[in-house]
Amino acid sequence: MSIGEFDLIAKYFERPVRQAVLGIGDDCALLQPTPGMQLAISTDALVEGRHFLSTVAPERLGHKALAVNLSDLAACGARPLAFTLALAMPRVDERFLTGLAQGLFALAGQHGVELVGGDTTAGPLNLTITAFGEVPPQAALLRSGARAGDDVYVSGTLGDARLALEVFRGGCALPADDFEAVRRAMECPQPRVALGLALRGVATSAIDLSDGLVGDLSHVLRRSRVGATLRLAQLPRSAVLAAQPEALQRLCLLQGGDDYELLFTAPPSQRDAVQAAAVRGRVAATLVGCIDAEPGLRVLDAHGRRLGELGASFDHFKS
């Protein structure tokens, strides 16, 4: 016999809370931020067929649902505290729920963040998480702080998630091991929380790369009222992507979404501090360009020539 909503919550999602004042079981959760800190709040929805494929393993879906919210907190330099989950699904599938909870709580445990509430209902499969973090006053990393002369950095490598999507779409083929590597990048992104914390007081602006490098950097440029020049050859990529045709590499690097790496800016005087932050964050930080006073985004090829049409980033209502 299928279990009901409240038994489902108790069995798969209710956990004792250690940081929150009150967790699951009442109409509201109660959080107690550290005195003097500001709350950072992020919400993301994942919809089947739009943000993930029906073939994704439930463990990976649970991981990704939380990871994309933790990535937003990382981009603001916020320490994660707690999160809520709103889950809609066509029917109760206990195998699916077991895997989903496993992936969700495994990542939550890595970052010391706890589930404190949410909702469940019948409907098309989608997950909406709201994550709460804290950051000292005036310390949050924002999109609006980039200044002319700043360096532009990205963490990790870019483009593998888009490469996996191209394989799913039939646009290219990869050997099994290479496909699994890029598929893992798409389905199990790693939120750069430790790097975001280490960049407080070092970076002048930051954003996480969810919708593609061109589009996400454009948000920073717009909010900061500056321009930028990037060098395509300096964009970090995996060996799998580097082995692909140049046009496919360019598509994945510039327009590919779902990387969930951090893009950030910092003055040249902070280059040593940036690399020290990368060491603390246990991820590479690569210098890929600079911020210009002249508005607009310019991308140069390996010969220093400006690329023409850069393409559009992902848009939920146009893509």
Rank of each mutant, 00 (worst) to 15 (best):
I24S: 00
G49H: 05
E166R: 13
Q102C: 08
Q190R: 04
P245G: 06
T130E: 07
L287G: 04
R250K: 14
Q244L: 09
E14S: 02
S224K: 11
G25R: 00
Q275I: 10
A20V: 01
A65H: 05
A278H: 09
S224M: 10
V182H: 05
N126R: 08
R237S: 05
G23H: 00
Q275T: 14
Q244K: 07
R250H: 05
Q138D: 09
T43G: 06
T265G: 14
A75G: 15
E166S: 15
S54T: 11
R162S: 13
H63W: 08
P16L: 02
E180M: 13
G289H: 13
A278E: 05
P35Y: 00
F96C: 01
P35H: 03
F6G: 01
L8T: 06
S319N: 11
E166F: 14
V202N: 10
R60E: 15
L53A: 15
V279P: 03
T55I: 15
L31I: 02
V92S: 07
L104M: 08
G227L: 13
R184L: 13
T34L: 09
Q110K: 15
G215M: 09
H316S: 06
L100V: 03
A173R: 09
L263A: 13
L73N: 02
F132N: 01
M37D: 00
V56D: 02
L254D: 10
L262P: 10
A293F: 00
G62K: 05
A285H: 03
E180G: 02
R282Q: 14
A88R: 04
T34S: 07
V283N: 02
A45I: 07
R162G: 14
V152L: 14
L232T: 01
A176I: 07
V113K: 01
D44A: 15
V202Q: 09
L61W: 07
G256V: 07
H303A: 12
L115T: 01
I129Y: 05
Q190S: 07
A194G: 12
L307I: 08
R18L: 05
D44P: 03
E309G: 05
S238V: 06
A198F: 10
T98M: 05
A45C: 06
A302D: 15
G227N: 13
G36E: 00
P58I: 03
A82H: 02
R306N: 03
A40H: 00
D315L: 06
I41L: 12
A140M: 06
E246R: 14
A29G: 13
D272S: 14
P90L: 08
V47W: 12
S42T: 14
L217Y: 08
T120G: 05
F13Q: 01
D178P: 01
D72S: 11
G159S: 08
L310V: 01
A122K: 05
L230S: 08
L213Y: 04
D216G: 11
V226D: 07
S71T: 02
A247K: 13
I9D: 06
D119I: 00
F314K: 14
V299Y: 11
